[in-house]
């Protein structure tokens, strides 16, 4: 198979980027999308050119390193997978493929297709944890947690932090990412004591990082490689409302530019 690739090249965060066209030859249908890019890079290195920078690591869809907007869709045309799980047999021979990085103010481009996603880490540091010391935990079976509850928490917890939700959202919002973590911890009894502080702190951090707001279009859910439901965003909004009431001690409307935009 052969393909014409239009790939975004950009030298650094402050440089101007542009598309460069490459031809991919001798691609076999059983090659993964990243292996196809490896092939291009091997050729470039052979001629002393700098290869196309892109991120990848586990190549089995769990580490969340790989990204790429392929023909306008984060992680490419298939649903429920990451770019590294995409195989070339999915494309028709001779096709033209456009590859862009995640584009968001909060994700500055480091080089070519590599973006800096540390904003997501900073949101997690703001409150995405349970403050519990190592040692001295009670027996795991002391807390009984219903199967349904555990499954819901697990649904939310499967987020791999790839940022596709941000990439797909027309507002580059990280609501689904935050919603997944907040819902995971708020669903479990262990996470309850800190739930009000957590949701407020994480949303505040999200604002500060320059993500947009939720327009309830659910593009995030549609591209999420782990199929995390936008229902968790409603849950996040509910948690936020609840936190506003709990924190102020009286029923009032919390102000947040992010929990909205109908």
């Amino acid at each position: 198979m052969t393909f014409t690739l239009k790939i975004w090249r950009q030298n650094g965060p402050h440089e101007r980027g542009r598309f460069v066209t490459y031809e991919a030859y001798d691609v076999s249908p059983g090659m993964s999308f990243l292996e196809m890019l490896d092939g291009i890079n091997q050729r470039l290195i052979g001629t002393g050119e700098e290869p196309v920078a892109f991120e990848q690591d586990c190549r089995e869809g769990i580490c969340g390193s790989c990204s790429l907007v392929i023909n306008g869709i984060p992680h490419g045309p298939d649903q429920g997978i990451t770019t590294c799980q995409l195989y070339m047999r999915r494309f028709s021979d001779g096709a033209s493929i456009t590859i862009e990085p995640w584009r968001a103010n909060a994700f500055p481009i480091l080089k070519d297709l590599v973006v800096d996603r540390s904003a997501l880490d900073r949101i997690m540091q703001a409150g995405g944890y349970i403050s519990v010391n190592t040692g001295g935990a009670v027996d795991g079976n002391v807390l009984l947690i219903g199967k349904d509850q555990a499954e819901t928490a697990m649904d939310a917890a499967s987020c791999i932090g790839c940022g596709a939700c941000v990439a797909a959202c027309k507002n580059a919002s990280a609501m689904l990412f935050v919603a997944a973590k907040v819902s995971h911890l708020a669903t479990l009894p262990q996470g309850r004591p800190e739930r009000a502080r957590r949701v407020s702190a994480m949303l505040k951090a999200m604002d500060q990082e320059g993500f947009g707001s939720c327009g309830n279009q659910y593009e995030c859910e549609a591209v999420c490689p782990k199929g995390i439901s936008a229902r968790f965003i409603a849950n996040l909004n509910r948690e936020y409302l609840r936190a506003g009431i709990v924190e102020s001690g009286c029923p009032s409307e919390p102000e947040s530019p992010h929990a909205e935009s109908a």
């Binding site: 349970i130 190592t134 040692g135 935990a137 027996d139 795991g140 697990m154 917890a157 995971h184 262990q190």
Partner: peptide
């Protein structure tokens, strides 16, 4: 026990 306390589902 530690992992349960950390909220691992």
């Amino acid at each position: 026990d530690q992992c349960v306390a950390l909220g691992i589902p």
